[in-house]
C-alpha cells in the first residue's frame, strides 16, 4: 500500500546549522505516528518541508504517492496541517477563520457552516467563536488551528506540537478525535516532547536529533520493552543534569 507520507532525503541548512540532514521517514497509511526529539532537533523543520512550507535544500516529500514539491496542488489537498508558532489572520473571529479556511479549501458554504459549528462545539470553542483570534489563549489557538486542519476531512494530518498548552479536557477530546480518524483509515503524524503521551497514542514512533532520524519503527520495536523516556536518553547519550551544583537554590 502507498505510504501516507514519505520524506525522502530531506536536508535543510541554515548557515552553519544543519537543521535537517537527509531525513528519510516512511509513515504507513493508517498509522498514528509520533515524532519525538529534544528541542532544536529538526522536528518542525522536517514537518515544514514535508507539507510545503519550507523549501528543502535537497530531497522531497510524497503524500500518498504525490510529490509535494512537483505536484503541490493535488498533494496538499490531501493534508491537514497544524503548524507551531505561526499566526492566523488574527483579526477574524474563530468562526470567520474556519469559514475562510473552508472556502479556501474549495468546500461549499453550507458544508463549511455545518462543519464549523460542529468543530467549534466539540473542541469547546463555542463560547469564543465570535471573539477575535488575536485574543485567544495559546491553548485556544492550538484548538482553532486543529479545527482548521480537520475542516476538509484530510486523509493525512500533520500536527506540530498539537497538545502544547492545551488543557487536560481538551487534550482528551483531541486524542479521541485523532484516534477516530486513524480507525477510519486516516493517518496522523505529530511531534511532541511528552513521551507518555506518545507511548499511549502512537502505533509508530521516530526519534530525531541534530537533524537526523536516529531510529524509526513501530512503538514496540523502538521501545524494545523499555520506557520511551529511557530509550531517548540512551539514544542521545545524554546525561541527566541537575543533581550537582545549584547549592544556593536550596538555601
Amino acid at each position: 500500500m502507498t505510504p501516507a507520507l514519505e520524506m525522502v532525503g530531506l536536508s535543510k541548512r541554515f548557515g552553519d546549522t544543519v537543521a535537517a540532514d537527509r531525513v528519510d521517514l516512511v509513515v504507513p497509511s493508517g498509522s498514528f505516528y509520533g515524532l519525538v526529539g529534544p528541542n532544536g532537533a529538526g522536528k518542525t523543520t522536517s514537518l515544514s518541508m514535508a507539507v510545503g512550507l519550507l523549501r528543502p535544500d535537497t530531497g522531497t516529500a510524497r503524500v500518498l504517492g504525490l510529490d509535494v514539491w512537483s505536484d503541490p496542488e493535488r498533494a496538499k489537498a490531501l493534508v491537514g496541517v497544524l503548524p507551531d508558532a505561526l499566526s492566523y489572520p488574527e483579526r477574524l473571529t474563530g468562526r470567520e477563520l474556519l469559514t475562510y479556511v473552508g472556502l479556501l479549501r474549495g468546500l461549499a458554504r453550507r458544508v463549511v457552516a455545518e462543519r464549523t459549528e460542529e468543530l467549534l462545539s466539540v473542541l469547546g470553542l463555542a463560547e469564543a467563536r465570535d471573539n477575535l483570534v488575536v485574543d485567544y489563549s495559546t491553548g485556544m489557538r492550538k484548538k482553532i488551528g486543529l479545527a482548521a486542519a480537520l475542516l476538509h476531512a484530510p486523509r493525512l494530518l500533520v500536527l506540530d506540537e498539537p497538545f502544547e498548552a492545551v488543557d487536560p479536557v481538551s487534550a482528551a477530546t483531541i486524542r479521541t478525535i485523532l484516534a477516530r480518524l486513524v480507525v477510519s483509515g486516516g493517518t496522523v503524524i505529530f511531534s511532541s516532547h511528552v513521551m507518555p503521551l506518545v507511548e499511549r497514542l502512537c502505533s509508530h514512533v521516530a526519534v530525531i536529533a541534530r537533524g537526523k532520524v536516529l531510529v524509526a519503527g513501530t512503538l514496540a520495536e523502538v521501545r524494545a520493552g523499555r520506557a520511551l523516556d529511557d530509550v531517548l536518553v540512551d539514544l542521545l547519550h545524554a546525561d541527566i543534569g541537575g543533581a550537582e551544583g545549584l547549592v544556593w537554590l536550596a538555601s
Partner: peptide, 17 residues
C-alpha cells in the same frame, strides 16, 4: 502586515486567488 499567516495560502495552493 499579515506576517506568517501566509502559511494558509501555501498549504491551500491559492496564491492566485
Amino acid at each position: 502586515m499579515d506576517g506568517s499567516s501566509l502559511w494558509l495560502t501555501l498549504v491551500t495552493e491559492t496564491a492566485r486567488d
